[in-house]
């Protein structure tokens, strides 16, 4: 019962914040709404027992990626007049929403979901928990994990080369 209520609260928050992201003129307000949408998504992940994913959603997406997004907004710093000019007309947005709904949501609602027995998944309740992710990542997938540090190292060097004009 309480899970159903929580699900609808989180889903409504997600859709509400998502709509705010595309309807605000001020890009900072859009970005903040996106943080809210990410938080709602993290809640949904947590309800699906995907705890690691939920933590990543908050820490990396709502925390890290949004910092980058906000920095880009601040670096560009568009004037209010420029932003007003970029505003789409209301009916264009409505048409786009209907189009997306018809193209993506309805096939999921009417074709994919009824054909699967979603409620009785074959994974154990521990699947997706912090401990099971840790056990998998640090025992079974040890080499990819260590390679990951090299990928991140490349990202550090790449960021420095791109952002610093003279090294």
């Amino acid at each position: 019962m309480i899970e159903t209520v929580l699900f609808y609260i989180l889903a409504a928050a997600l859709i509400g914040f998502g709509l705010m992201v595309i309807t605000r003129t001020n890009p900072i307000a859009s970005a903040m709404a996106m943080v809210g949408a990410f938080a709602g998504l993290a809640g949904l992940y947590a309800m699906l027992n995907a705890r690691f994913l939920s933590i990543i959603q908050i820490l990396v997406y709502a925390g890290g990626i949004m910092v980058l997004v906000i920095f880009v907004i601040m670096l560009l710093n568009l004037e209010p007049e420029d932003l007003q000019r970029m505003r789409a007309k209301g009916f264009v947005v409505l048409l786009a929403l209907i189009g997306v709904g018809a193209a993506i949501v309805s096939p999921m609602l009417f074709c994919v979901i009824p054909n699967k027995d979603w409620a009785n998944g074959s994974v154990s309740p521990e699947f997706g928990s912090m401990a099971s992710v840790g056990a998998k990542m640090f025992a079974d997938h040890l080499f990819p994990f260590e390679i990951l540090s090299l990928v991140l190292l490349t990202a550090v060097v790449g960021a420095l080369v791109l952002a610093k004009r003279k090294l």
Partner: peptide, 18 residues
């Protein structure tokens, strides 16, 4: 308009965040 130098800090932050 903010200084581009801030962006480098943000990039490094995200990497160490991961």
């Amino acid at each position: 308009r903010f200084n581009i130098s801030f962006y480098l800090y943000a990039l490094l932050f995200v990497i160490f965040d991961i």
